[in-house]
Design a protein around this nucleic acid. Sequence first.
DNA 1: GACCGTTTTCTGGTCCGACCACACGGTGTG
DNA 2: CACACCGTGTGGTCGGACCAGAAAACGGTC
Lengths: 274, 274
Amino acid sequence: MPVEWQPVRQSRTHELVLQSIEEQVFAGKLRAGDRLPPERELAPVFGVSRSALREALRVLETIGVLVAQPGRGPDSGARIVRNPDDALGRLLRLHFALGSYSLHDVMEARVALERSSFAAAAKYAVDRDLDEASAVVHRMSQPGILPEEFNELDTQFHVMVATSSGNALTSTLTSAVRESVRPLILRALEEVDDWSATRQHLNAQHSELLRLVRTGHGEEAADLAELHIRGFHGTLVDDERTAEDADERTAGGDEERNEAGDAARDEDGSGGRR
Amino acid sequence: MPVEWQPVRQSRTHELVLQSIEEQVFAGKLRAGDRLPPERELAPVFGVSRSALREALRVLETIGVLVAQPGRGPDSGARIVRNPDDALGRLLRLHFALGSYSLHDVMEARVALERSSFAAAAKYAVDRDLDEASAVVHRMSQPGILPEEFNELDTQFHVMVATSSGNALTSTLTSAVRESVRPLILRALEEVDDWSATRQHLNAQHSELLRLVRTGHGEEAADLAELHIRGFHGTLVDDERTAEDADERTAGGDEERNEAGDAARDEDGSGGRR
DNA sequence: GACCGTTTTCTGGTCCGACCACACGGTGTG
DNA sequence: CACACCGTGTGGTCGGACCAGAAAACGGTC
């Protein structure tokens, strides 16, 4: 493996501030619910300008560990929170749009995560959570439902089951991954030939999934979930292929795109190593 | 389900800028490799100050879709890139430190992701990638190796296999999830009773995993990977439990912590729905 | 003393203008 | 041609000012 030295580029002061705050978190000195001092006080503490501090805070806000509220009172100021969902969702959505991941990648990840979710849900889920999921399935069965709302509810269903499994991480990841392909799925649902039949077929699977979870059949639920996801993504992949072909026919700029992306990635480098 | 209206809080201009840039990405008008105009030009285009624009760019940089380089020349300026790994790693690391996820959650997610990785690697991996993984395993077998380096190489091994599977998403997620528990694993490795035996045991599993992958036995590899991860995390969970007990004995502040965190999460709300 | 409207104060959010460090590109000089 | 120099453009930082909003502090009224 040829060693490639990478410029460190640590000069930026807002990154130093960020690092310092992160260390407080790792050391357990900053915990969820804690409030940070006002920006005008904190900046001099770090010995930086308010702008630099603000950029560091913005980063923390982006990853969902901080929220800021103007005004005065107990709820004002910057507070440490735990809200990874929005951050993760935005991250995957953007990267999927940029082509960092293929649809096939997303499908495999969904299968892996949701297999785990359904198996765990069959073990740990409480009735109350499953009742809510049932309600969602019921709403999905309404005859006149449109793809738009169906897509929304389908997301809710899968996320609910993941949540009911009690695993916050798989739940968050499932939600984010599902979100990242939401527009694609919507488009596919809207272009499906026999919408009524498709809807009923998917919903039958949803009901059966819930039944398996309720009766504690984790492995069967996982298998069906895999089938459920693969089945639907299969049509998606086909759509994507034809769409790509169409693009190529009109423009043929796909190679250039990949080239640009790969070059960008290489130059940026690091590859997640630290 | 009771409807709770959430204040929208859309006033912040940098979020509007961000939204505008995101739309360009979703529309495919901004692609990996593209360069943005200089900040001093772009700010007036959006009709905002340079500071507001910069905060939006900082968010994009945090997500790993943008890098900025000062100076002059073809590599300078802000460019769209695809580097989700660092962003995802930092996100999960911080949230894990804040207690958003339990160690059990992480273990289950690892099992789900790496089962998929190993199974896919058995199908798709090329010899060249597996040779690199073999080299890592070999370096891990060096007699005098310390937990520090072993931990580093073990991370590399698992990430390499995930990468060799050809699935960028599972690979990224695997890497990020593994990173988030790296300090914990290091501590556990350092406190293990018989380091030499542990190391040899883990390495035997690594070798066997590679053999199964090479010979195309995906299911067996997945099963062993699950065993491998569960086996080691099992000791971790025990350690965490005793550590928690110790904390409780001295301070007993655990309830307050969870309370603060949950309250923070509730107030922030949204729950990833959009 | 209790209530209600006004003012003050404190918060993050924004804007402006200036300067810094750095890297490239052009220019002049040997 | 080779080299040193300087101008130029980039992101990064800084300080100061002001804005909007929310709550606390204040003051008047009943």
